[in-house]
Write a protein that binds this DNA or RNA. Structure first.
Lengths: 129, 129
DNA sequence: ATGCATCTTATGCGTCAGCATATAATTGCG
DNA sequence: CGCAATTATATGCTGACGCATAAGATGCAT
């Protein structure tokens, strides 16, 4: 059993790590690549993904983002030409999303920043999610 | 030295923990007490604080919140009568903030929820911030 | 005492998030 | 077949955030 103080200390510690790392990531990605963290993470999943396109639904699946927020994130990426939407012909309710060549390039650049920030600011021990 | 995969795994793990716990906290505090997490945390610092009042500045010091966001959080708490602002006579630029009796009560109730959520959802191992 | 840099809090503005709902397509059941 | 329920995405709305800046108070230098 865990004492209240213990609980709070652990939570504070988690908060501290999260805020430090996420803050640094947000700033670095924004300043150097004009991307929000959400935009980068979306791009990342698209680029890392085997096939070249994924349905919104599948994307949303492993992101911590509401469906509506993902939809708007893809809007923003599409407007800047980093991503392309295409109707899924098999099920016309669905929408495929794929990174464009430009998107792939931007992702590769930003990924270096992302990893560098993690290397600099992520504490060595992490919780077992 | 840490491999890229390692870094990303650790970060994902931190993200997972943070999102799970903060999401549960947000929902529980909102549904059961009509408080945002930020509002609770602000109230918490005011109540736990030795004296009965603190300057905005000191409050902001140990919160992960911009100065403007804190100012507006105090606005909201004040509007609901959970907190009181008072000009600091010694330095009239400063503003004291103190929890009202009502604020103290609301905090005590919400704190039980807060701790219960932590006990249920905080993973046992936490990073060394 | 006056003016200027500094400090503290508040506020205008733009962005992104989530919830609820609208819209469009599909499925299933009579 | 036709209609209701379901699924996938988009959108209206509201809330909270951060940045830049305004407004008010202080203090130091001359």
């Amino acid at each position: 059993m865990m004492s209240e103080v213990d609980l709070i200390e652990r939570w504070r510690s988690l908060l501290t790590s999260y805020n430090r790392v996420s803050g640094q990531l947000d700033r670095a990605l924004q300043e150097r690549h004009a991307l929000t963290r959400t935009e980068f993470e979306t791009l990342d999943r698209l680029v890392v993904w085997d096939g070249d396109k994924r349905r919104m639904q599948d994307l949303a699946g492993d992101m911590y983002l509401s469906q509506s927020a993902l939809s708007r994130t893809v809007d923003r990426l599409e407007k800047r030409g980093l991503v392309r939407r295409a109707i899924c012909e098999a099920d016309r309710r669905g929408v495929f999303v794929a990174a464009t060549d430009d998107g792939v390039r931007r992702h590769a650049e930003a990924r270096r920043t992302y990893l560098a920030v993690l290397a600099d600011h992520l504490p060595p021990a992490a919780p077992r999610g």
